[in-house]
Computed example of a mutant assay.
Amino acid sequence: MIPVLEIGGTHVTAALVDLRDGRVTSRTRKPLDADGDAEDILGVVRHCADGPPVPPGARWGVAAPGPFDHARGVALFKGVGTFDALYGMDLRAALLDGLRQRPGDVVFLNDAHAFLTGEWSTGTVRGHRRAVGITLGTGVGSAFLADGRICDSGPGVPLEGRMDLTHDIAGRARAGEARAQRVLDDVFTGLGVALGPRLRDFGATALVVGGSMARSWDIVAPALSTGLVTGGWTAGARRTRAMKPAGPAGDAALVGAARAAVLAGGKPS
């Protein structure tokens, strides 16, 4: 079982993952204030990580949003509205030294990359050679995957594989506020128009959507689909193309983080 953490803008989750079947156990989830000071944020992360029964010396996988130096484990949040207090902090060292059961190593992975890797391993885009994933929450994360590996360059892939956007008004739209619905329609249509040519050029046969906004699929899907068609990528136009919401358990990023931890040890899975 691989210990993992997923750090998000509103919560942190710790769990154990069995990569043989993608099973997630011993899940601990705690609310997180991304606008808090550094010690408060780290305190919540550490407290959450101390929940699952993890043996000392284990290698952890951690899914964390950008901007972040995932190779070194250093936070680079600046001017993005979240985790500003962590700027320049070595989170790898903070976890190596601060967890009750001392890790042997901590491996960081971009949260969107972890999400898509997990969905490809055991989720909704399993079997697709080329797939794209987007996470919709307080912002937009994106990842491009070919034959099981994340791509950060090539046809259709934006710089560093990133497409950024912010929004948080789904509740108002669902409550019947017409202006909120129009804004969301414009946002997701625009996102689809921007994504469409990239998915076409990348040769993606699947787009999977995760994050908190994926729970509002009835709001997201129509406008996003319209934009994708306008942008030249028609989900469902052929049997090989599909746009899907992430699995209901929301475990993909945890599975992806676990894969990163195993691969860092030189053990393919």
Rank of each mutant, 00 (worst) to 15 (best):
A170E: 09
V12Y: 07
G171Y: 02
A49G: 08
M1P: 07
A194G: 15
H128E: 09
P3N: 07
G118Q: 01
L145S: 03
A242G: 05
G190D: 04
M163W: 02
A34N: 11
R259G: 05
V106C: 04
V62N: 09
S216I: 04
A204N: 03
L195F: 01
L228Y: 02
R174E: 13
M89E: 12
A246V: 00
R46M: 14
P103Q: 13
C151S: 10
V12M: 12
G127F: 00
R130M: 00
D201G: 01
T10L: 10
I41A: 06
D37R: 15
V220S: 02
A246S: 06
P197I: 11
L191G: 02
H128T: 09
D50W: 07
P158Y: 11
A235R: 02
A38N: 06
S142H: 03
L195R: 00
A49R: 03
A71W: 05
R239H: 09
A257H: 01
R179A: 15
D97E: 15
S142Q: 06
R149C: 09
P222G: 12
R92Q: 11
P268R: 13
R149V: 14
T138C: 12
L191H: 03
R126K: 14
A14H: 07
H11S: 15
G127A: 01
F68W: 11
D105L: 14
L263K: 08
R102A: 15
H70Q: 08
V209I: 07
L136M: 05
G8W: 03
L145G: 04
G9F: 03
M213K: 01
L145Y: 07
A58N: 06
G148H: 03
P103I: 13
I169Y: 02
A15R: 10
V74D: 05
R92S: 08
G9R: 00
G203P: 07
A85Y: 04
C48F: 12
A38V: 12
A221W: 01
A38T: 13
A175I: 10
G236T: 07
V12F: 10
L254V: 04
L16I: 10
P3T: 09
R20I: 08
A221Q: 04
D105E: 15
G43M: 13
V45W: 14
H11F: 06
F77E: 02
A260T: 14
W217E: 00
G154A: 02
K244N: 01
P248D: 10
P55D: 08
M243C: 07
I7F: 00
R130H: 03
R198G: 04
A246I: 00
G139A: 12
A64E: 10
G247Q: 00
T138Y: 12
L91W: 06
A58Q: 10
R149K: 14
G266W: 12
P248A: 12
V157G: 02
D40A: 15
V107A: 08
S142L: 04
I134P: 06
L42M: 13
L228R: 01
D33M: 11
L191R: 01
G61Q: 05
